[in-house]
Write a protein that binds this DNA or RNA. Structure first.
Lengths: 232, 232
DNA sequence: GACTGCCTAGAGTATATACTCTAATAATAG
DNA sequence: CTATTATTAGAGTATATACTCTAGGCAGTC
């Protein structure tokens, strides 16, 4: 594997694990056992590394959110979309953590991210439309639909931050992909009231698969995941 | 005003304006025209300043989210809760921006924030309960209610980040309280399907007040707030 | 062998950052 | 007034951070 690609890969890995803010270019070089000079031969600066990682992320999500034009979508499609989006979120999870700072320090990124957001919102909106075509949810006026899409987006993009901040007192408690995907439970909660009677049971069953499980790990304060869809 | 209080005030102001990450203790001292030594006489470190600001935030929100035990709540109450929460979010808006980093660097803060989140979630849940008592929304099973509460929390806490990141390409475009409060539109969107017929019109009217207005400022790419509840 | 283009090492640098230390000045109490 | 305490200034420091610069290796080609 080329050094350049190794840099991208290691950066992503380190950023995800410890946060972009805590990882310097020197860390990345050290992790790869290459010199800083070498790293800077391949990338002009840290921003360029991040920008390129973002472009991968963008490409991945765009690929998954390619909604078919010619047919309505099924529950299986919906599951696939949700799973894929959360997979993407997981693989590039560092990104949303320091999003505002990153956008402030790179105008290209700000511009691209803005467009990316709009594409995602449009895709969610289209999914709602196609779900209605498929008779899974009742059709809604365009305006409500787009407000709902935005809520879906807000829930998806904030779910990880919620998990990390509501997590057990141990700072190092690390997130799992399984936990992350419990966000699907929350997203499906948003859609519940709009389901058609024919599909209601099936979606409820699907949703049930993502229900947060009670904490397995021992707990200091004992509350933890009660908040997450459990006891009030 | 005491130097100590001035430090807290200026810190909050600077953090809100430029982000905690971009503000050093030296900046704060310079802004107040005091020496770094003076600042460190009053606070052991930067974390302590942030922790104390958080405690103010906490107190404020707790004060506002004190739900009456003895009666159902009205639409006016609901409006007040929503307005207050977004006011609080606005006044301490730096906090959610770097939340994860802040919690990672201060275990006290992590613990307190966790409990704070749980109190907020419980309050939202109670509000849903009282809204049902007041005949504004249809009562829902506890489990659905708490999943809904969590979604409300996710939308509220992520709304600002969304605005800032979806904002016009100008990095410096600054947010207004009015824009922030359009988050109320999104929150009320979540509640729409659960409204009782008697209240539906009134809540729709209330929601309408927070509908995002079309952008007044000129736009580069011309999309901007379309995403925010507008055209799809 | 010599030339060329790509890659790499590693020491080095300018700046920033959080924080310390000492000494001096105000404020207050007796 | 004196003694004590609270507050402040301001120079200074250890460490970190993003990044630069120079020299050289290595692979292929003639």
């Amino acid at each position: 594997m080329k050094t350049r690609d190794k840099i991208l890969l290691s950066s992503l890995e380190l950023f995800n694990e410890r946060g972009e803010r805590n990882i310097t270019t020197n860390h990345i070089a050290a992790h790869l056992a290459i010199s800083p000079g070498n790293l800077y031969y391949h990338f002009r600066n840290k921003s360029d590394i991040i920008y390129e990682i973002f472009q991968e992320y963008e490409k991945l999500v765009d690929y998954y959110l390619d909604i078919p034009e010619d047919r309505a979508i099924t529950l299986e499609d919906l599951t696939f979309y949700l799973e894929s989006v959360f997979d993407g979120l997981w693989s590039y999870r560092f990104f949303h953590r320091d999003l505002e700072y990153l956008l402030d320090s790179d105008p290209r990124l700000r511009q691209d991210y803005r467009e990316f957001t709009n594409r995602c919102l449009a895709a969610i909106d289209r999914i709602f439309g196609k779900l209605a075509e498929g008779g899974i949810i009742a059709p809604q006026p365009a305006e409500l639909r787009s407000a709902m899409s935005l809520n879906v987006w807000l829930v998806i993009t904030n779910w990880m931050a919620f998990l990390k901040t509501a997590h057990a007192a141990d700072a190092q408690a690390n997130l799992t992909l399984t936990e992350l995907k419990q966000g699907i439970y929350q997203v499906l909660t948003l859609e519940l009231p709009y389901l058609t009677p024919e599909y209601r049971e099936r979606v409820l069953a699907l949703r049930e698969k993502y229900r947060p499980t009670l904490p397995e790990t021992t707990e200091q304060s004992g509350v933890r995941l009660n908040a997450v869809g459990g006891v009030a």
